[in-house]
């Protein structure tokens, strides 16, 4: 989703004349798990022209019907501050935390990577898989499926290595993230 519209050149645009840095931030959003809540969040991003690099959602507290949405977004720092405030306006949202502004956080993503090949390519794929601590979760005489968990960069790197060997396709979950240390969000 792309929001870098030419409107950035408009005299009405707040970024006119200013070259604002683009940053990548990870937002954690705690929401009531009710119908339509994801549509509200996604609709906010498309309606206001914000970027979504990755979005994941799952229920995290069944008794309280709470879901956690993790959004990776890019933009100028002031745009990302706007995104947090705009998210806070959505009624069923409990809390928005910009993890990237905190001391430290972990992000992980799971990917399944299908690779096709015979002979030399096959051994090479297995060897690299081991080096990345990818698990083989399916195999035929001419293919493997690797399961790999890690920071998005690690998965990107692995996928790039598999490409010349015989990459068929990739399925990725998107990022889940959490702060380090004893405190919750």
């Amino acid at each position: 989703m792309n929001a870098q519209t030419p409107a950035a050149l408009s005299p009405y645009s707040s970024s006119a004349g200013k070259a604002s840095r683009t940053e990548t931030h990870t937002l954690s959003v705690l929401v009531d798990n009710e119908p339509g809540v994801l549509a509200r969040v996604v609709g906010l991003f498309s309606g206001r022209g914000y970027n979504i690099e990755s979005l994941t959602v799952a229920e995290v507290a069944h008794a309280q019907a709470l879901s956690r949405i993790t959004i990776v977004t890019t933009g100028a720092p002031e745009t990302i501050e706007q995104i947090s405030h705009q998210l806070e306006r959505i009624v069923p949202i409990h809390k928005v935390t910009d993890l990237s502004l905190l001391d430290g956080f972990l992000q992980r993503e799971l990917a399944m990577i299908k690779v096709r090949g015979k002979g030399e390519a096959r051994t090479e794929a297995l060897r690299l898989g081991e080096a990345f601590r990818a698990r083989v979760i399916d195999a035929t005489t001419e293919s493997f499926i690797f399961e790999l968990t890690g920071a998005p960069k690690k998965i990107d790197d692995f996928v790039e290595l598999m490409r010349p060997i015989g990459l068929v396709e990739v399925a990725r979950t998107g990022v889940a993230a959490i702060t380090r240390g004893p405190q919750g969000m």
Partner: peptide, 24 residues
């Protein structure tokens, strides 16, 4: 025109909606 808006001023903004602040 935003880049010529009140160029010599300090600005205080009182509003009930945090998303209105620093938006434009």
């Amino acid at each position: 025109r935003l880049d010529a808006f009140a160029p010599y001023s300090k600005k205080i903004h009182i509003d009930i909606d945090p998303s209105s602040i620093n938006k434009n």
